[in-house]
């Protein structure tokens, strides 16, 4: 089981080569950092002051996450998960995959593991992007000092981990939908509707029940005067519970399919 799972992981990873999902991860991770770099280079007059500020890294962190947490991370997760699962439908390869000497659990969980790994890859690259967003203006613009404040690595790691947990329900539900429905629009459409529902339910006291709200809640919680309804329970715990439920239901639907490919 362990060896065949490892082999299946290698196989699934090879399938992502040159895929649109891989490009979404790369472009998504560096999109906001590049915008920040460009803006800073254009409006370089105030850089010397901000780079000397003790809150430099916290401000940069918040700026970088703004569009990511609210828009790019949920939409990127919806698209990437759906695209990876849909690779088999698009290429008519489910039947080939199901005639390989792999158990259904290996097929299901190795594909899911690759999606989760791509999510981790996104977070790592995004953190690198944030660091580059600080470094490049310092290297390019004359007179800008290297930030005097130390990098709050514990904040970066903790918050990245929380955003990772908060994104898991999106991955879980999108994976379930993408494996179950051949039509790509079902999973993407449902994902977009749930994301819109998440935006609309932020002020609702039971908004935490919508599983796509968690990255947004996690970002907005740190902002003063955020006007969101404080979740009644920990959204991170809710995220993990939703993920486990979605994966469990997804696996049950996957193994119960009458036609496999």
């Amino acid at each position: 089981m362990t060896r065949s799972f490892f082999n299946s992981l290698q196989s699934e990873w090879l399938k992502t080569k040159r895929s649109l999902a891989t490009w979404i991860v790369l472009v998504g991770a560096f999109f906001t950092p590049v915008i920040i770099i460009v803006v800073r280079i254009i409006y370089h007059d105030t850089l010397a002051t901000s780079y000397a500020s003790p809150t430099f890294w916290a401000t940069l962190w918040r700026n970088a996450w703004e569009s990511i947490a609210i828009f790019l991370l949920p939409m990127g997760s919806i698209l990437t998960t759906s695209l990876i699962a849909q690779l088999e439908y698009k290429n008519n390869t489910w039947k080939q995959l199901h005639t390989l000497p792999l158990s259904l659990a290996t097929i299901f969980f190795s594909k899911l593991a690759i999606i989760v790994f791509m999510l981790v890859q996104f977070f790592v690259l995004f953190n690198v992007g944030i660091y580059l967003a600080a470094l490049v203006p310092y290297l390019v613009v004359a007179g800008v000092p290297y930030p005097t404040a130390p990098i709050p690595s514990d904040l970066f790691v903790r918050e990245t981990l929380l955003f990772f947990l908060d994104t898991l329900p999106i991955v879980g539900l999108q994976y379930l939908l993408s494996l179950h429905y051949k039509n790509f629009l079902v999973s993407i459409g449902t994902g977009v509707i749930l994301w819109i529902a998440a935006l609309g339910s932020l002020k609702w006291k039971f908004g935490f029940a919508v599983p796509y709200t968690y990255p947004i809640f996690n970002y907005l919680k740190s902002l003063p005067d955020n006007k969101i309804a404080a979740p009644l329970v920990s959204v991170h715990v809710m995220a993990v519970i939703y993920f486990v439920v979605f994966v469990g239901v997804g696996f049950w639907l996957f193994v119960s399919k009458r036609e496999k490919g």
């Binding site: 196989s11 090879l14 399938k15 080569k17 040159r18 290429n91 390869t93 489910w94 080939q96 490919g261």
Partner: peptide, 15 residues
């Protein structure tokens, strides 16, 4: 049943 975005060799390496 083939992955269109991969080469012939890559398709076989996957399996």
């Amino acid at each position: 049943s083939l992955y269109g975005h991969l080469t012939a060799r890559e398709n076989l390496v996957v399996l």
